[in-house]
Design a protein around this nucleic acid. Structure first.
Length: 462
RNA sequence: GGUCCCGUCGUCUAGCGGCCUAGGACAUCUGGUUUUCAGCCAGAGAAUCAGGGGUUCGAAUCCCCUCGGGAUCACCA
C-alpha cells in the first residue's frame, strides 16, 4: 500500500513550495491507489499560529488536493496532530534510552551556546560535545528525582558511515562524525521534528517520505533512528527546492510565496498545479499543458530532475492565459463574477467575455480593462483633440440600429467627412468612451454599453 | 568553514555513447493581420552542453579533477 504524507507545520500562510511538495505526494498516492495523509506538525509551541491549520486545509481544498486522512478527516492512524501524540513520542524516546541509543542531557542552554560559539570561532561545525553521554546511572536518577530540566539526545556513534538511498540521487553517504547528537525530546516534553517524523511515519505506515531537499543533510539522523528502532525505512524522496532568480531558496523577498497571492491575482489552481508539475518534471511527449489526472497517470518520482528550478511567474501567467482562452465563456463569466465578489452585474460581464477573453491572463486583469462598462471613466488628459466630439455625438445619434458594425461604418464615414487621421480619431473616441487608451474592441464595447450611455459619455465631454 | 546536493539557450526543460551542424516551451526581437491592446500566423537571435583532463572509432551523455551555485549545521520545522 502506497501511503504518502504532507508534514505541515502550522506556522503561517500556506507556501507555494508546500503545494509543490503536496502535488507530488498526492499524485504518487493516487497513481498507485494509495492514500495521501496530512499530518500537522505543531511541535514548536512558539511558532505555532492558531489559524494556520485552517488556512492550509483551505488551500488544499482550493487546489483540490484533498487528503484521505487528517485531523479533519480521521482515519485508522490518528491522531493526526503531533501535539495530540505526546505520550507516544515519550514512550519511544524511553525505548531508545533503554536501548542505549539515546541519552539524557542536563546541559544548560548557556553551556550549549558557549561550546557552539567556541567551535564556530575555531571554524568547526558547531556540535554537541557529548558531555552528558557518559553520566552514570546514579547521577541521572538523582537529577531526575530532583526534577532537573532535561532533554533526550540521539546517540550518534563515531566513525561510521550512514547511508541513505534517495530516489532521485541514489546513495548518499554521511560520515557520522559530522552528525550532531540531535535533541529528540525537548525540555517541555515535546518531541523535535526528528523523533516525531520517524515515529509517526512508521506508525502511520508511510511508504514514501517525500520532503524538500533542504532535509537531505539531516536524513542521516532519520536513518539512524529507523535502524535503532529496527523499523523498515520508507523510500526517501528529496524533491528539489524552488529557487529565486538568484538561485537561493524561493522567498517572499524575491517572489510571491503565499498561495493567497495567487488567489488574489486570479490564477487558477489547476494552472498553478500544471505549472508546478513542469518544474523538475516534463511530459514524455513534451506537452506543456495537461490536467492533474494526466499528470497522475504519467508521474513517477524517478523522473523528477534533482535540479532546483527557478520560479518563473511569466510562464505561469502565460499558462493562465491559455487556460482562460480555452475556457467556456459561461464558465469564465462565473469565475469573474465570483472573483469580484458578485459586485458587478453578471449579465453585463457575460456580454464582455468575448471581448476580453484573449486579452487577460489572470482574473485580476479584468477590471482594469473593463471597469468602464460599469461606470463612466473620463480622463481628459488623454484626449488630444476634442474638437470633433460633438460631430461624433451628432453622427451616433443618427444610428438607429445600435450594432457594432453599423456603429463602425458610421464612424468610418465620419472620419472621411472630417478628413482626420483614422488612428487619431478612434483613439479620441476610445478614450471618450472607455477613459483609457487601451481597451477592448471599441465598436463592440459601444454596442454593449448601449446608445444612450455612449451618447451620455460623449455629451459630458463635448 | 565542515558536510551533502546540483551544473544543457535569460528561465523551465528534451537528451540517457553515434539520429545533436543540441530539440521544444516561456521571455525577447522582427514581419503580417489591425481603429488601441491583446490574440493569432510567420520568422529571428539566444546554450563552444560550467571548465579541464581522460575512456572510446565516436561524449552533452561514462570516469576524474577544478570552478561555480545551492542546502544544511537550534531544546525551528
Amino acid at each position: 500500500m502506497i501511503r504518502t504524507r504532507a508534514a505541515i507545520s502550522p506556522t503561517g500562510y500556506p507556501h507555494i513550495g508546500t503545494i509543490y511538495q503536496v502535488l507530488f505526494d498526492y499524485a504518487f498516492a493516487h497513481k498507485h491507489k494509495g492514500k495521501f495523509i496530512v499530518r500537522i506538525e505543531d511541535t514548536d509551541k512558539e511558532r505555532t499560529v492558531a489559524d494556520a491549520e485552517e488556512k492550509v486545509f483551505k488551500a488544499l481544498d482550493w487546489f483540490k488536493l484533498v487528503e484521505d486522512e487528517s485531523v479533519r478527516k480521521t482515519g485508522p492512524y490518528g491522531p493526526y496532530r503531533q501535539s495530540d501524540r505526546l505520550d507516544i513520542y515519550k514512550k519511544y524516546a524511553q525505548e531508545l534510552i533503554n536501548k542505549n541509543k539515546a541519552y539524557y542531557c542536563f546541559c544548560s542552554k548557556d553551556r550549549l551556546d558557549e561550546i557552539r560559539q567556541k567551535l564556530q570561532k575555531e571554524g568547526k561545525p558547531p556540535m554537541y560535545d557529548k558531555h552528558c553521554l557518559n553520566l552514570d546511572k546514579k547521577t541521572i536518577d538523582q537529577k531526575l528525582t530532583n526534577k532537573e530540566s532535561y532533554i533526550i539526545r540521539l546517540y550518534v556513534p563515531k566513525d561510521i558511515k550512514i547511508k541513505i538511498k534517495d530516489e532521485l540521487r541514489g546513495e548518499v553517504i554521511f560520515d557520522s562524525n559530522s552528525v550532531d547528537d540531535q535533541v529528540l525530546l525537548k525540555s517541555d516534553g515535546y518531541p523535535t521534528y526528528f523523533l516525531a517524523v520517524v515515529v509517526d511515519d512508521h506508525l502511520m505506515e508511510i511508504s514514501h517520505m517525500v520532503r524538500g531537499e533542504e532535509w537531505l543533510t539531516s536524513s542521516a539522523k532519520i536513518v539512524l533512528l529507523y535502524e535503532y528502532f529496527g523499523w523498515e525505512k520508507p523510500v526517501f524522496v528529496h524533491t528539489p527546492i524552488i529557487r529565486n532568480p538568484d538561485r537561493s531558496k524561493f522567498s517572499k523577498r524575491q517572489g510571491h510565496t503565499n498561495v493567497s497571492w495567487y488567489q488574489e491575482q486570479g490564477f487558477f489552481p489547476e494552472v498553478i498545479l500544471n505549472y508546478l508539475a513542469l518544474m523538475g518534471w516534463s511530459h514524455p511527449q513534451g506537452k506543456e499543458i495537461f490536467t492533474l489526472d494526466e499528470f497522475i497517470k504519467l508521474f513517477d518520482f524517478k523522473d523528477i530532475s534533482p535540479v532546483g528550478p527557478v520560479f518563473d511567474l511569466n510562464k505561469l501567467e502565460w499558462m493562465n492565459g491559455v487556460h482562460i482562452r480555452e475556457s467556456q465563456d459561461s464558465n469564465l463569466k462565473t469565475q469573474i463574477y465570483n472573483f469580484y465578489q458578485k459586485k458587478y452585474p453578471v449579465e453585463l460581464i457575460e456580454k464582455t467575455i468575448p471581448l476580453i477573453k484573449e486579452r487577460i491572463k489572470k482574473l485580476s486583469d479584468y477590471l482594469p480593462l473593463c471597469e468602464f462598462f460599469f461606470k463612466p471613466i473620463h480622463d481628459l488628459s488623454l484626449i488630444k483633440d476634442r474638437s470633433y466630439i460633438k460631430e461624433i455625438h451628432k453622427e451616433l445619434e443618427k444610428v438607429s440600429d445600435w450594432k457594432a458594425d453599423i456603429i463602425g461604418e458610421s464612424m468610418q464615414a465620419l472620419v472621411k467627412k472630417l478628413n482626420v487621421k483614422t488612428g487619431e480619431f478612434f483613439m479620441t473616441l476610445r478614450v471618450a468612451i472607455t477613459g483609457k487608451k487601451i481597451s477592448p474592441p471599441l465598436n463592440k464595447s459601444m454596442e454593449i454599453l448601449g446608445k444612450e450611455e455612449c451618447l451620455k459619455r460623449l455629451g459630458q465631454l463635448g
